[in-house]
Amino acid sequence: MILYLFKKKYRGNFSNKGDMDYMFAIRENLIKFIKNYPVTILIFIVSSIIAIGIILFFESYKNAIIVFGGLDKELIEKGEIWRFLTYAFGHMSLFHFLLNMPLILILSRPLERYYGSIFFSLIYMALSISSGIFIYYFYQGSYPLAGSSGAGYGLIGMFTFFVLKYPNKISSYDKRFILILLVLGIIFTLYTPDISISGHLGGFISGFVLAFFISILNKNQNKVSFYHI
């Protein structure tokens, strides 16, 4: 709905009309979408399988989250460090899954298009792990935890950097959309009970810093468009 309203209001209001499009608009059919964004699809499929598995085979979300690789401080201290990554594919509830997955689908596509599928997969894993590390050291609530929101906030952090670094390469529509996501994300993080503020903040910081370092190491990135494959 937000995408539709902004698209209607800011139609044609681009810095370079001929070169720009709506970055977050989904226009591909299903076959082309799968072909162009295999990593985004894989994230969605793995998370969906886990969500369905929890609903069908577990009575307790807590036990299910542990089985499916949730982030648990005691188990990590016992050597199960893979949980810094695997927790990002499970969710604390069906509502949590339904809340996070649209965000991941919307935000992952432009970055997978921009960086390429292989490099984007490394970025997504790095954001998930870094968010998990922030949770491990700073979260004081109950465990286990699961969810892709840390990585999602990491993606928002990357887009925030892009808006500041490459303002002329991003349409006014997309700048506003990113700003709305950022503001809603802050409100949601601060006012939702029992949420992992450290995971969200850690993800955002990691995404912003990661985008900064990639821009330094890869000078050719300045020549790449956010809007075309």
Rank of each mutant, 00 (worst) to 15 (best):
I2H: 14
N13H: 15
N16M: 08
K17G: 06
K17C: 04
D19M: 11
Y22H: 07
M23R: 11
A25Q: 15
A25S: 14
I26H: 13
K32R: 14
K35R: 15
P38G: 07
A51V: 06
L56Y: 08
I65G: 00
I66D: 07
F68V: 03
G70I: 04
K73M: 02
I81H: 09
I81G: 02
F89A: 00
M92F: 12
L98N: 06
N100D: 07
L105W: 10
I106K: 09
R109A: 05
P110T: 06
P110D: 02
G116M: 01
F120E: 00
M125K: 12
A126Y: 09
S128P: 08
I129N: 06
S130I: 08
I133N: 04
I135M: 12
Y137F: 14
F138R: 10
F138C: 01
Y139G: 00
Q140W: 14
Y143Q: 01
L145V: 01
A146D: 03
A146P: 06
G147K: 12
S148N: 02
A151Q: 09
G154D: 00
M158W: 01
F162G: 00
F162I: 01
L164D: 01
S172R: 15
D174R: 10
K175S: 04
I180D: 02
V183S: 09
G185W: 00
G185M: 01
Y191T: 09
G203H: 02
G203D: 00
F204K: 04
G207H: 04
F208W: 08
F208D: 00
L210F: 13
L210P: 06
A211L: 05
I214P: 03
I214R: 08
N220M: 10
Y227S: 02
Y227F: 13
I229Q: 14
